[in-house]
Amino acid sequence: MEFEMERFISALFDRSPPHAVEHLQLVLIPLTTAFIIAFPTAVLLTRRRFIKYTDRVMTFFNMGQTIPPLAVIAIFFPFLGLGRTPALFALTIYALLPIARNTLAGLKGVPQDVKEAARGMGMSEWEMLFKVEIPLSMPVVMAGVKISVVLTSGTAALGALVGGGGMGAVIFAGIDFFRAELIIAGTLIIGVIAIVLDRLLTVIDNILTPPHMKT
């Protein structure tokens, strides 16, 4: 492999920064949207009235993951045209499952005796949800969000294929011109984005997690 340091530095510091900003948007917007959709849905699915829909809804979320990422990205293109919108749609769908799955698991994992005690103290169902169940399941939920962050950061590289920009643009340029420097620089920045977001979520997790559950 030919590797020119100079080209690598230039790829990293001149070419990449604008794409890095786009990439960050390609990660954060879908992630936030996915959380806004998946978290309340999963919470609802643990309520008695909606529990019977769990399997069906989860099958739908599951599809978002089973269907290949390239297909998910591509399928919106004919309807939404070139640009960031199809990429954002696709990445949102892609990020849903880990958040929904972990929210379900987290809420189901709250020990029965704790809920029993809360009910015994006279908490209403809503109070129990917000004061007991959600706080106790937060570590598991956040783990799900982190999985989504890693998945979305990587998959967002495909956003460039439909004109969504992001680090994918740099990487694909590297493939087209056989330039390892571009590919590695692009990958490195995606890695940094994923790790920084992961750390950020750890900080948030530490604030949200009840003190006694910290390890």
Binding site: A157, G168, F172
Partner: peptide, 19 residues
Amino acid sequence: NILFVIPSISLFGIFITIP
């Protein structure tokens, strides 16, 4: 974990630049 963070397209790209 590191491998998983690398986007698939990058991994493909890196391999093809190896002569």
